[in-house]
Design a protein around this nucleic acid. Structure first.
Length: 104
DNA sequence: CTTATGACTATGA
DNA sequence: TTCATAGCCATAA
């Protein structure tokens, strides 16, 4: 069951429930690599996308910020998708992790 | 084998 | 508060 590092990251992201967000460090920790947040982000870059079962749009920075410039069709697009799932945002433009951080 | 890169995070100015 | 830098580690060349 040992697949590549990337596929393991996708597997964790796949477990993120709708209307919830997780930070790269959180995903990295759940996959057994708490120091590999960067590699998780890189895995999202190489992810098959939401159509492939990897809701990379639910993965955000540790402070709730979104990935600038590398969103699906635009930085505002990712925020729009999260809002559509019920995720709340702060006036700072970051996700309200205080209430929507994935706990699992 | 070594070097370079990067959708991160923590810390300091 | 925002901006810059250092550290971390997997992948590619």
């Amino acid at each position: 069951m040992n697949e590549g590092f990337f596929e393991r990251a996708w597997d964790v992201v796949r477990q993120i429930p709708e209307g919830r967000v997780a930070s790269y460090g959180q995903v990295a920790r759940l996959m057994g690599a708490p120091r590999c947040a960067r590699q998780v982000g890189y895995a999202m870059h190489g992810s098959p996308g939401v159509a492939g079962g990897v809701p990379c749009h639910r993965v955000v920075f540790a402070d709730g910020s979104l990935a600038p410039g590398f969103a699906f069709g635009g930085p505002g697009e990712q925020r729009r998708m999260l809002e559509a799932e019920g995720v709340g945002f702060l006036s700072t433009g970051s996700v309200d992790m205080k209430n929507f951080s994935w706990e699992a």
